[in-house]
Design a protein around this nucleic acid. Structure first.
Lengths: 107, 107
DNA sequence: TATTATTATCGTAATATTGCGATATATAAT
DNA sequence: ATTATATATCGCAATATTACGATAATAATA
């Protein structure tokens, strides 16, 4: 066993879970915040800033990228990662909705 | 290897990650939504509604409970799980802040 | 083209999560 | 007290995640 049964859940629930999964590691939260604080950002900065190996940072970046929360563009020699505002807004809404829709009608 | 290095991250980043972790499985998202939709709620309903084994639902409930997002009170024979509004509001703010604070000053 | 610096991928070890059957515990009703 | 029902815990197997060193790929520059 041990296989997540994603197929038995609704699209919406899986979506919320996917976003949450990306945010469920402090390194990725820290990376997103750091990128958003900078004018431009290269991966090597992150290695220094976060304190994990370069390979590990790259893996985390990849998971964030798969969700579409960041995009990389080359600026001269360096790859510049930036927040993807469109996706960010969408996912912010998705979460906002989820939190908002809960009712407290019990106990 | 394989040990998450939570100690190298800030309190805030670890907090956001912990909340996200609980929401990172569709079953838990579905459970929270279902509980919030009901007047009162017993675990057996969840087993039918979600479609996972009773033991598995119980485990998921426990993880949500550890975060303080739900609380259980007995109503006669049944244990009634409800959203813990205080914690819910706090965590909603934590997330709202995180999403809000990101700036798009690049690319 | 060769060199250097940056980023991605591969392989692997350690640990964590998911899921379930079996079983224990708890509460209500008989 | 016994029984029935609801929920929690235990133990295990399958899978996923995390981390890192080594190495490959990419791009600017000499």
């Amino acid at each position: 066993m041990g296989v997540s049964k994603t197929h038995i859940f609704s699209e919406k629930h899986n979506q919320v879970a996917s976003v949450a999964k990306v945010l469920s590691h402090p390194a990725r939260v820290a990376i997103l915040e750091y990128i958003s604080r900078q004018e431009g950002c290269i991966c090597n900065d992150l290695v220094d800033e976060i304190g994990l190996a370069q390979a590990t940072i790259s893996q985390h970046l990849n998971e964030i990228k798969k969700l579409g929360l960041i995009k990389g563009t080359f600026e001269g020699k360096n790859l510049c990662y930036c927040i993807n505002q469109g996706t960010w807004d969408t996912l912010q809404n998705l979460f906002g909705e989820f939190f908002q829709n809960v009712k407290f009608n019990c106990c």
